[in-house]
């Protein structure tokens, strides 16, 4: 199974990178962009037969390491394994 994890700063935490990106996009002719956030994308290839357990485990991983929940939110997207290949590392 593949779990895709999106991590981003919480709205109330100032994000200088997102602010800089907003300004640059505005300068490039995209004034409609009012704000931006730059987050992280993590892809995990997981070998387990138990999909429900996998969801719990990935959530646990987010709390223990993948996100710092003091300042970050995370979102997990679980995908069925359609291709029998491990991620290249």
């Amino acid at each position: 199974m593949i779990a895709k994890v999106l991590v981003s700063l919480q709205d109330e935490v100032l994000d200088p990178a997102g602010r800089a990106l907003t300004e640059r996009l505005n300068n490039l002719g995209f004034p409609e962009v009012k704000s931006a956030k730059i987050g992280k994308y993590i892809e995990l290839y997981i070998e387990t037969g138990d999909r429900e357990k996998e969801k719990e485990r990935v959530e646990d991983m987010c709390h223990k390491l993948l996100a710092n929940t003091l300042v970050e939110d995370f979102e997990i997207i679980h995908e069925q394994e359609d291709k029998k290949k491990e991620l290249k590392v």
């Binding site: 700063l9 935490v13 100032l14 994000d15 200088p16 990178a17 800089a20 710092n68 003091l70 300042v71």
Partner: peptide, 16 residues
């Protein structure tokens, strides 16, 4: 801070 020995977190400098 990450090990929670100290409270809080350190983020990117405001000037990037």
């Amino acid at each position: 801070c990450e090990l929670e020995v100290l409270p809080g977190v350190l983020l990117q400098n405001i000037s990037s």
